[in-house]
């Protein structure tokens, strides 16, 4: 049985928005932890998160200063901002509403439950006191939904497009965090050398990579090893290498995959040439910039091939 292009498209976006919700929550959570450990004056600015999400213009439209209060309001409590958690959750829910037929029955309940939870609590969650509990709850609800899909979806088109959405969104977020986060750490290198490991640790934390890194690499966190791990670990499911491998696998199962697989091959070749040891902050930025462009082209070819094709 085939699947309507429009249904596939909604599943893909549902999955991207759910992943975005979870990743944004993790990003805030890890920054939150970090800030408490760093001597006053040395911490990276709060609005670095705005840069990670590439939302400077949007943010400036509503807020003057990048204070903790404003940034958190923008990301957690603001109902209208298209970069905030409430928006992503709403978008995920709208996409599930019209694809309930191809999802397990509990999917709607869980996603709707997440939506109701965010509606009820986001307003009061931007302050330091409630922030942690709110974000943890959001993260665990997202994990529950992922768990449901992993455990009960037949491995057909629905599963395939959900997985693709998650992979693409995750790669997008991972590279954004590395671009802005790693650059910030590298540019201040030497000036505050003592807290560098803390900052790299926070970055791994934001990528949910801290525990996996410790097991695979060891407890000492330093620049080269951290970058290497995020890009090239073949076992860590949020690494770029893992993303390329799994995406290729999913695409191969679909008809007409030539255009999209070519985009993945380009990503794969770039990854093979990567040498993290001699990266300057400028080189890292250029590398990720180029990677992001290829990612956009992959996303566009998925849309053009399976969602928005005109005629054959």
């Amino acid at each position: 049985m085939s699947m309507l292009s429009s249904v596939a498209e909604r599943l893909y976006w549902m999955s991207r928005y759910l992943e975005r919700t979870q990743d944004t929550a993790r990003l805030i959570q890890s920054y939150n932890h970090l800030i408490m450990d760093i001597p006053k004056g040395a911490e990276p600015p709060w609005d670095i998160m705005i840069d990670i999400l590439d939302a400077r213009l949007l943010f400036r439209a509503s807020f003057k200063t990048g204070s903790e209060h404003n940034v958190l309001k923008f990301l957690i409590a603001d109902n209208k901002s298209s970069c905030g958690i409430p928006f992503a959750v709403r978008a995920a829910r709208e996409n599930v509403r019209t694809t309930r037929d191809v999802l397990p029955e509990e999917a709607w309940e869980l996603v709707n439950g997440l939506h109701l939870f965010v509606e009820d609590h986001a307003k009061n969650a931007s302050g330091r006191r409630n922030r942690h509990n709110f974000l943890s709850e959001v993260i665990s609800r997202c994990q529950m939904i992922n768990g449901l899909f992993a455990a009960s979806l037949p491995r057909d088109h629905a599963y395939g497009f959900i997985k693709l959405g998650r992979l693409v969104e995750c790669a997008d977020m991972t590279t954004r965090i590395m671009d802005v986060g790693a650059r910030d750490i590298m540019e201040r290198a030497g000036r505050l050398g003592a807290i560098d490991p803390l900052l790299w640790g926070a970055m791994l934390q934001a990528l949910s990579a801290a525990a996996a890194y410790r097991r695979e690499v060891g407890p000492i966190i330093e620049k080269d090893a951290a970058l290497n791990f995020i890009f090239l670990s073949s076992t860590f499911p949020r690494s770029i290498k893992y993303f390329v491998r799994e995406t290729r696998k999913e695409l191969m199962r679909l008809n007409n995959h030539d255009l999209a697989t070519r985009a993945v091959e380009r990503l794969s070749r770039r990854l093979a040439r990567l040498d993290t040891e001699h990266f300057s902050s400028v080189e890292l930025h250029e590398y990720i910039d180029d990677f992001q462009l290829q990612l956009i082209s992959l996303d566009a070819s998925i849309q053009a091939t399976w969602f928005r094709w005109e005629r054959v």
Partner: peptide
Amino acid sequence: ELVEGTDLMVGDDDFVYMRTVDGP
């Protein structure tokens, strides 16, 4: 299948097709 107008198209052969991930 539950479809909306944009899920369907009429080909040059005057048959009606639905847009699926495997083509028409």
